[in-house]
Amino acid sequence: MRNITLSKAVNEALAEEMRLDSTVILMGEDVAEAGTPFKVTSGLVEEFGTTRVIDTPISEPGFTGLAVGAAMTGLRPVVDIMFGDFLFLIMDQLCNQAAKTHYMSGGKLTVPMVVRTNMGATRRSAAQHSQSLHALVAHIPGIKVAMPSSAYEAKGLMKTAIRDNNPVIIFEDKLMYQDKAPVPEQEYLIPFGAAHILREGSDITLVATSSMVQVAQAAALHLAEQGVSAEVIDPRTIAPLDEETILTSVKKTSRAIVIDEGHQSYGVTAEIAARIAEKAFYHLDAPVQRLGAMDVPIPFSPALEDLTVPTPDDVVARALMAMRGELFHAL
């Protein structure tokens, strides 16, 4: 199988869906000739023209609002939000309008739109271009949230998102755009709400999202060298969340660490850990642990920024403590 970058995988997903369905349009800042700063959408305007690949003014709430109205009336817009940090600008259109329209209208109106944006620190982009804000939108009923962990995942999840009849937001880790992975030539979709078990294990479950899947996989290798068998699970979508796969795994391993790049407090790690504690408590041999980004604005200095996100070493240390039955209340 060929290896392609995550950037190319997203580009292919967009192009394939635009070829299949003439109501799919792409809109955002510099998505046409510029192909976005990350060059993800390069070539699309040449194939589909400026009617379907629309460069917008720097007006995130405005063009997201247009997408909501367009989705309600027959188009399937994919909105490009250049940096995930700009989510704060579109919160009303996304959370008060798009997310609630189907429910508020008693099922009469639908909003089949995709917001594709990014996340991830350690790119030396400082506090307003480095956040991982997926927990904010996952909190809102009516929005689906996908978090691809590789090029393969990014393509399959994007295609599913475009065909979904609801608002979907996809967070791509901006540090992974050039990461290559095997991606089939033939068409495939990845269903939402179906977690992927990347590695089977018997001692501890590592639930990880997006780029943290790589962190968990690296940790699992180190742990294996020390005789600890880790199971690695990628939920793929955090809304909907495949709770069953996670709980089944934890009931088997009796230990769990949840790793995610959002801020740790009130975040995705807290949510998944709480569900494990609620529904698999009597199967646990150790407290469920969370590893999220530090609760600080992402600092610019490399010396500080790298401290803020979980690393394989962090995961290994926590896992070994869990295996040894050490108490965690001092952490």
């Binding site: 063009f63 997408a67 109205g69 989705a71 309600m72 009303d92």
Partner: peptide
């Protein structure tokens, strides 16, 4: 396409409907 409880909140929706048209 609906009343809206956010003042000005439907400006995008109406304009988006026009984009569809």
């Amino acid at each position: 396409l609906g009343a809206n409880a956010i003042v000005g909140g439907s400006a995008g929706i109406a304009t988006g409907a026009a984009l569809t048209a």
